[in-house]
Simulated assay, not measured.
Amino acid sequence: MVPILDYLLERQISPQWRGMLTALAHEFETQIGHDELRQLMYRVGGRFAAAHQLPACESTAELAQTLNLYWHEMDWGYVEVSDEAECLRIVHYCAPLRTFGDAALAWTPAFLQGVYQTWLSALGAQGLSVAQTSEYGEDTAIEFRLGRHPA
């Protein structure tokens, strides 16, 4: 199934952007350290979220529906959202982060982390933070959790 996913994800990105984004990522990696790249992408995600604010959501199901509407409109995959005992779990699938190249998967998910942090804080999750709790998987999943995380 992985070759099928690879093919579909490759088709998701316009050819006019593939080479440029990969070159941009390589240049970033030669000029900026890994931690700084994660911080940069986190800030970019926050800026993106501030420009694309979510409406108020009354439930986890409504939040998931709203997130999926936004991501679908932008062709950025989809999410599954669930309430866990100590956190809110968000699993994002099919984000086109591989466009920057496989090596960039170490830092590009911080974009989504910044998006979710900004959106969820605006919805009332002050004092809680979003942490990335998995790497980008072969199934394209990246997991985030909103909760109280050690500093």
Results as ranks from 00 to 15, higher is better:
S134W: 03
G114N: 01
E86Y: 10
Y78E: 14
S121H: 07
L128A: 02
A110P: 14
L88C: 00
L123F: 06
A85L: 12
T118N: 02
G101S: 04
S82H: 01
E135S: 10
P96T: 12
E73R: 12
D83N: 12
S82D: 07
T118R: 09
W107L: 04
T118G: 04
A104F: 08
T108F: 07
W119F: 12
T108C: 05
Y136C: 08
G127E: 10
Y78W: 12
I90F: 13
L97A: 11
S134H: 08
F111N: 07
I90S: 00
T108L: 11
Y78T: 14
S134N: 04
W119T: 06
C94E: 10
V91Y: 13
Q132F: 04
T118W: 00
F111S: 05
D83Y: 00
W119R: 02
P109L: 07
S121P: 02
L112C: 14
L105P: 05
G101Q: 00
L88K: 02
Q132S: 03
A95S: 12
D83Q: 15
D102M: 04
P96S: 06
E80M: 06
A95L: 11
Q117H: 05
Y116P: 12
E80Q: 13
Y93D: 07
A95P: 07
G114F: 01
Q117F: 01
A85S: 14
L120E: 01
L88N: 01
R89W: 12
L120R: 01
L112S: 15
Y78S: 15
E135Q: 10
V130C: 09
A122Y: 00
S82N: 05
D102V: 10
A131T: 06
F111G: 08
S82R: 08
A85P: 03
G114M: 03
E86F: 13
Y78F: 15
V130Q: 05
D75S: 10
Q132N: 04
R89Y: 10
E86S: 13
Y136E: 09
A125F: 14
S134Y: 06
L120Q: 02
A106I: 00
P109I: 08
V115S: 01
L112E: 09
L97G: 11
S121G: 06
R98A: 07
S134D: 05
D75Q: 13
G101F: 00
C87A: 15
A95I: 08
A103V: 14
G77K: 01
L88V: 02
D102F: 02
Y93K: 10
L88S: 01
S82C: 08
I90Y: 08
A122W: 00
C87I: 01
